[in-house]
Nucleic acid binder design. Structure first.
Lengths: 226, 226
DNA sequence: CATATATGACCGAGCGCTCGATCATATTTT
DNA sequence: AAAATATGATCGAGCGCTCGGTCATATATG
């Protein structure tokens, strides 16, 4: 990192979170680069040790520079936490949108949405759990922002359900029902992450998807098998 | 609290958690009494400030005695956390069992189970959220125990569902489906607590119960209204 | 090209403080 | 008096963060 003079990154898509966090460093590309290092290594530390037991020194070391340098790029440990939360959200949102992109135009179905989303939750288990654990430590100014981000992902499902409502073999659903189903899909995906300890005894992610799909589609009442 | 010499409590139902936590004090009734004071006041502190920002001094003060005395009844701050977790679990479990007692023999129905349980979740919102937040700080020796407790409550639903399966207008359900429905009821109850921030915009606890019941019962597919 | 100067990224010892835990002492109970 | 219980001043490890200083590189000058 010492010898990294020519940092020539093209301007990347605006990552809103960076704007909120002040820095001493002049070169904005370098800021992006270093903060990416910070976030990438800190996620692992937070997952393994939790927020409080992770020290700023550990963060600096894992990111590959000194404690002093860390504070050139970030004003506080809470800043790091915020950057981590935003990064995870961005990654999850991107993964969900990518996964649903194919499904969303035309031949979409609730089953596909659930499947793709649950696979994302499975793949990103640790970050998902981390978000549940650390949101509480964010300073107030950022907590609401991060909480809203969760809603954005739920909203993706709600939008999709709105498109699907009344089409195919799906009945029309009122606004409230759609909203609730959106929340449920969202949370039942998370449940696979934060109850995996229990659920893994009885389910694989595939069987979990199968049963939850059956459940969300209300098949409990239709027949008992296949 | 100073003048509380004659503590004459009849032996209460064995509260398992006490056995795990050593104390300097000889009189077991006094230990129970003081620990109840500790737990009762600490729940509020943890809810309001979180585990880490709550200091042992705050705990002692809120419980009504000195920091030194606190450590006579408890070996560490983590001990307090464990006692709090166990107390909350006991309270929730008791509330759920009480609520289902009437419903469980004979004229039970899934709708009633959901209703009673969700009302408990609503009433005990703060403790429910607290449990989600603090479990991560328990020492390993206790974490699994506390996690298992969560399963106990889920198991109550599973047992009830097993009784109901195939009776009335309810179809027979295989073991796995029942297990999943049990977990879902459990988590969807919690969801009312940890998403109340969002959900309260669209639901009251009553409408939430109504819609979720409809959802769990798979009515999405049957009709769109009442 | 060689040299001088300016810039700003990088460093880490150390400061100030918090907080869990202890222990010598005082008070109460038996 | 002896034992049990209560007290709060005191300790010290650990933490986030600062700040004076170094060094690599870019620019200016001769």
């Amino acid at each position: 990192m010492k010898n990294n003079p020519k940092v020539t990154r093209k301007k990347i898509e605006k990552n809103c979170s960076h704007a909120d966090v002040p820095t001493q460093i002049k070169n904005p590309d370098l800021v992006r680069e270093r903060r990416k290092q910070i976030v990438d290594s800190t996620v692992h530390l937070f997952v393994e040790h939790g927020y409080h037991k992770t020290t700023t020194r550990m963060i600096a070391k894992a990111a590959g520079f000194s404690i002093g340098s860390l504070y050139e790029y970030v004003g506080s440990k809470e800043d790091v936490l915020y950057l981590v939360c935003q990064a995870i959200h961005t990654e999850v949102e991107k993964a969900v949108e990518d996964a649903l992109k194919g499904a969303e135009d035309g031949k979409a179905s609730i089953a596909e949405i659930i499947r793709e989303y649950f696979l994302v939750c499975d793949k990103m288990m640790d970050p998902v759990i981390l978000m549940y654990q650390v949101t509480q430590f964010l300073p107030a100014k950022w907590k609401s922002k991060v909480l809203e981000n969760e809603l954005i992902i739920t909203q993706i499902f709600i939008d999709a359900l709105n498109c699907l409502s009344g089409k195919g073999d799906l009945p029309r659903m009122d606004k409230t029902t759609i909203s609730l189903v959106g929340h449920n899909i969202s949370v039942l995906g998370h449940m696979w992450a934060f109850r995996r300890w229990h659920l893994a005894k009885e389910f694989t992610i595939e069987s979990y998807i199968k049963y939850q799909t059956q459940f969300v589609l209300g098949l409990i009442f239709k027949d008992k098998g296949k």
